[in-house]
């Protein structure tokens, strides 16, 4: 027998928690500024509860061995599934912290190399071509044509 709880229950609980945190924040606001957000938060609270209730119904259905309809990208979240996305997320967070210190082009070259590495690219030529190619593309488009001041970093 399937013992797992449908993930809609968790989604609903998370949504309800977020709603609660935001609601708590409205206490400090003057009435006029809190009016519209409070209205949205009531609506969200209703939706979160409805999603939880629906999730419980889906859980029952699944335990009875019935099929539960899913939408396009919907999938049971498992650790093995989200391992790579979370790894990528942590790389991006580190990148953003380093970016301000070391500057854009150096950090980004390292980022590209790291991404290619975890995606199991091993040919040195691919690394060089991708880093040089992307770097040139960004330089020409953003710096030369669009006059964007990319972060220089304080080291250089």
């Amino acid at each position: 027998m399937n013992k797992s709880i449908h993930q809609d229950v968790y989604s609903g609980i998370v949504l309800l928690l977020i709603t609660a945190i935001f609601y708590w924040q409205t206490f400090d606001l003057p009435d006029r500024a809190a009016l519209f957000p409070e209205f949205i938060l009531y609506v969200l609270m209703f939706f979160s509860v409805a999603i939880i209730v629906n999730g419980i119904r889906k859980t029952k259905k699944e335990r009875d061995g019935e099929e539960v309809a899913q939408t396009d990208d919907e999938e049971r979240v498992t650790l093995s599934k989200i391992k790579m996305p979370l790894l990528m997320l942590s790389i991006l967070v580190v990148y953003l912290i380093v970016l301000d210190i070391v500057g854009f082009f150096v950090t980004t070259s390292l980022l590209i190399a790291l991404i290619l590495y975890i995606l199991k690219v091993r040919k040195p030529l691919t690394y060089i071509l991708t880093i040089v190619g992307v770097g040139l593309f960004i330089y020409v488009l953003f710096v030369y044509f669009l006059n964007v001041n990319l972060p220089q970093g304080i080291l250089f």
Binding site: T108, T130, V148
Partner: peptide, 27 residues
């Protein structure tokens, strides 16, 4: 190869969101 495309897209996501306001917070 898709690996290359992923690396390129991530980089463009970064630069693109920075470029609007020249702001790292936006990234």
């Amino acid at each position: 190869p898709q690996n290359l495309i992923i690396a390129i897209i991530i980089t463009i996501c970064m630069v693109g969101s920075y470029a609007i306001n020249n702001s790292i917070f936006d990234i």
